[in-house]
Design a protein around this nucleic acid. Structure first.
Length: 472
RNA sequence: GGCGGCGUAGCUCAGUUGGUUAGAGCACAGGACUCAUAAGCCUGGGGUCAGUGGUUCAAGUCCACUCGCCGCUACCA
């Protein structure tokens, strides 16, 4: 009997081009999905794009195109990134998909017992699609620091969701570990928010203000607040409420999100699920941000690096490797061309690539390319597995490299080139077969992280006869 | 203001419930070798573990305070 494994990324909002953070989130979720498939789990890995909201409408207006046209353009870019990064997602949902919109309305209906109409008065930033407190507005002198535009005073009638009533239930789920939030510092932050109690949230906007959204059922004057509606994708993509996929794959095994949207996923989304009478996700993994040369990446600072720049130069495999191993899985991390190149040369080419190469050459030279019986995996991978379970991708790769390093040490110790000078053919065959076996084991561990590299190594050694292949 | 975290070799970090001369990788220096993508292997230098004061037979590891960072959150107004 196999397990059902459902992993999601957050949906990038299509107001900007794909950046390193999106790319990293894709590959992290991809590792989880690939590892689960490797284990034989039934997997659904879903990602997509979030396309509604005032900010999209506004930007489209500036560009003199329709919101849908803008969304189409951006969606194509995100889809392209998942392709070039070899992301193995099974689904790609757009919040403008007909099915999502219809199901979102069903969800609204199902939540209506917790929805009431109220007056909202506050400061709003279209850039954030969010309201801000009086204090925040004052602290920033009336200008949103994220978008450098004035907050708007908004007073309007809209719908509220009774998030407050679920505070205790959410808190208990997190504390008990039924709903696991990692890393622990993020968990602590969420718990401290819950300790103060959640407030009811506004979940709609008047249609005359923002009409690029999903209509509230039964009230043509209102559209759903984009965040409220976007979060629903995690179940609409499974075909909530009637589809079999939903029945088998919910609750999600892991949801991967960035630290900036932790609150939406650790408080609001769980509240919605509880309102629907559904189980909470089993795990929420919150990753950090990527800096460049130690500074926050920004176009104005001139240190902006787009994913495709790196991929074009070094390839998707190296990209995946760097962002999984050298960006701390539980922290913010740093990208620099210098560091990237060092990792590329020292770790990928010299340590891994060269080990494969020297093994190939020896087998060809000493044994005409015949390996013979290759021993199976011999290392304890408990640490590696635990690391992946905990989304410690950096640690998992450290474990793999322990094996690479160990294999090089083994080769130096056995000195197959010395054995080749003697008549001890059996010993030589044994040593070289061990090398091939160790490389196959490494390839297996590498597959979720660098699928093409793993496949290349496997292709070389798999059937006992070395097939020369180009290595990275 | 409240809550949480951090400050360990030049850099990035690990250090389990306090217990012998504090660790790894990178960087740097030296060495032996040659199968290999001048890659790989071995050895070494380098740290008042932010500071001060405590608890203890014993503290990087516990307590208090100080300094410096960071995150979340709140508010005075």
């Amino acid at each position: 009997m196999s397990n059902y494994f459902y992993v999601t990324t957050s949906l990038p909002y299509v107001n900007g081009e794909p950046h390193l953070g999106h790319a990293m989130e894709f590959i992290m979720a991809d590792v989880l999905a690939r590892r689960a498939r490797q284990r034989g789990d039934k997997v659904i890995f879903s990602t997509g794009t979030d396309e509604h909201g005032g900010k999209i409408a506004e930007k489209a207006a500036e560009m003199k195109i329709t919101p849908k046209e803008l969304a189409d353009q951006m969606e194509a870019q995100f889809r392209k990134l998942t392709d070039t990064l070899k992301i193995s997602n099974d689904r790609f949902i757009r919040t403008t998909d007909r099915g999502h919109e219809q199901r979102a309305q069903l969800i609204w209906r199902a939540l209506e017992k917790d929805i009431y109409k109220g007056k909202y008065s506050g400061w709003y930033c279209t850039g954030d699609e969010a309201f801000f407190t009086e204090a925040e507005v004052k602290a920033n002198k009336g200008v949103c620091p994220n978008h450098n535009r004035p907050f708007e005073k908004v007073e309007e009638e809209n719908y509220f969701f009774k998030l407050s009533k679920y505070t205790i239930q959410i808190r208990k789920s997190i504390e008990s570990g039924d709903f696991s939030v990692i890393p622990e510092t993020r968990r602590n932050e969420i718990l401290s928010i819950l300790k103060d109690g959640l407030e009811d949230i506004s979940v709609s906007r008047p249609k005359d203000k923002i009409n690029w959204g999903v209509p509230v059922p039964g009230d043509p004057g209102q559209v759903m607040y984009v965040w409220f509606e976007a979060l629903m994708n995690y179940i609409t993509v499974l075909g909530y409420p009637e589809n079999e996929d939903f029945k088998f794959f919910w609750p999600a095994t892991v949801q991967v999100v960035g630290k900036d949207i932790a609150r939406f996923h650790a408080a609001i989304w769980p509240g919605m699920l509880l309102g629907l009478g559904l189980a909470l996700p089993r795990k929420l993994y919150i990753h950090g941000f990527i800096n460049v040369d130690g500074k926050k990446m920004s176009k104005s600072l001139g240190n902006y690096v787009a994913p495709h720049e790196i991929i074009e130069k070094y390839g998707a495999e190296a990209f995946r490797y760097y962002f999984l191993r050298h960006i701390p899985s539980y922290n913010d991390g740093d990208f620099s061309w210098q560091h990237f190149e060092a990792a590329y040369n020292n770790e990928l080419a010299d340590e891994l690539g060269n080990t494969v190469q020297r093994t190939i050459v020896m087998i060809q030279r000493y044994q005409e390319g015949v390996v013979g019986d290759i021993p199976g995996a011999s290392h304890d991978i408990a640490q590696y597995e635990a690391a992946i379970d905990n989304c410690r991708f950096d640690r998992a790769l450290d474990e793999v490299w322990e094996q690479v390093r160990g294999l090089n040490q083994y080769i130096e110790e056995e000195k197959p080139w010395e054995i080749a000078k003697t008549d001890d053919k059996d010993h030589l065959r044994e040593v070289l077969a061990y090398q091939a076996g160790a490389l196959l084991e490494i390839a297996g561990l590498l597959e979720p992280f660098m699928p093409e590299t793993a496949a290349k190594i496997q292709a070389v050694f798999k059937d006992g006869i070395v097939h020369p292949a180009k290595e990275t």
